[in-house]
Design a protein around this nucleic acid. Sequence first.
DNA 1: TTTTGAGTTGTTCGA
DNA 2: GTCGAACAACTCAAA
Length: 452
Amino acid sequence: MPSSIFWFRRDLRLADHPALAAAAARGPVVGLFIRDAELEQRSGAARLSFLRSSLADLNASMDGNLVIKTGAPIEALRSVIAETGATAVFATDDYGPYGRSRDTAVGEALAGDGIDVHYLDSPYVVPPGSILSGGGTPYKVFTPFFKAWKKHGWPAPGGVVEVNWDTSLESEPIGELPETGSELPAAGEAAAWERADAFLADAVFRYDEARNDPGIEGTSRLSPYLKFGTIHPRQLLDRLGDTRDEDVFRSELCWRDFYAEVLFQRPDSARNAFVAKMVDMEIDEGPLADERFDAWRTGQTGYPIVDAGMRQLLAEGWMHNRVRMIVGSFLVKDLHLDWSRGARHFMTHLVDGDLASNSHGWQWVAGTGTDASPYFRVFNPVGQSRKFDPTARYLRRWVPEIAHLDDKSIHEPWTCKAGAPAGYPGPIVDHAAERIEALDRLKRLKNRLEEG
DNA sequence: TTTTGAGTTGTTCGA
DNA sequence: GTCGAACAACTCAAA
């Protein structure tokens, strides 16, 4: 039997892998990863480094038989087909805008060459497009989607796939690990399970509360592994019980599916407001806006919780989710900048950067997304800091200039009796004033819509 | 078709 | 310090 090619993309694991199992059932398999310059350009150093470490781990699990090719996917696939005489290509289906158009083009081209192309399974619990509301339309609200998703169900995870790897090809290099200056998590399938086991044995049972405290390890930290498929969400669901806290974690996995579904239905929503009328919202641009964006980006806004988050992002390629919301709200509602500007910065630096979750997380914060959240929801960066980091453990870790301040004034150093600490900026804007400005802009938008 | 209930994560004000 | 109400009205999803 001639070999099949298994084309790895966002599924860098050997367990619970239906698409790989389908390839393996057909005979020898060339395990291929294509270094696509188009995708590498979109990754910052941290994500690229994590990806390459994940590939190195996968290669080790495959006894060194992972084949790397560099170039446009169709050319790389044709060259492997020419070298091995492979007659079929298998891959896990991709539902993002770039992946869909790439896979359609590749599928048509290879079909023309007489090659069988199979896209199976997905990186999600339920593949996008499978869950529709009673009216046959896609869901736009999370809660009914969550209910339908649970009702729909999912297959039990499979075991490790036994593969007869085709060893005839020389591989190109995985690529250097770019210098990031970031502390990245350990990559690979075993590392994913180490993290998952630790989380599922302990923090998951306090998840509802603990996930909101950025000063402790209360979140799963599994997002980078889910991004590259070193673990599949099915495998996590299979380990969850029915306590309230476990159900909250289950809902977080469902959010990942939900946003993939929304992006699948509306590919334009990666860059543009999901709610069309919000594109007319007034945003600030120009030199002052750029200066403020730079202060935000580098963690120099004078609001400790915002600066802590932005610095954590640069240092770890990751930011605590509670803090993602706070810095997002600050960019959009205090600085009046376009959410997509913040989203692009996140996508550059996040190790777990996922287009669907990132774009729609930002749109939720900006009020341009799928939920009908009340317009007066503006995060207060001081209030959030006091509420969720009461002992300032997170602030002291990431903003050492103010670490000596007491637990009360550290959240708003400008109120410090001894005067503002040296080496830390004063607040670049006044939150109370900018909150009112944000509400005014929404009011003005509404008035314009009513007139027009 | 119409009706009804509900909607991730908030803030502020005043009692 | 704590608590409930107001914020302002709209869209979605199901019955």
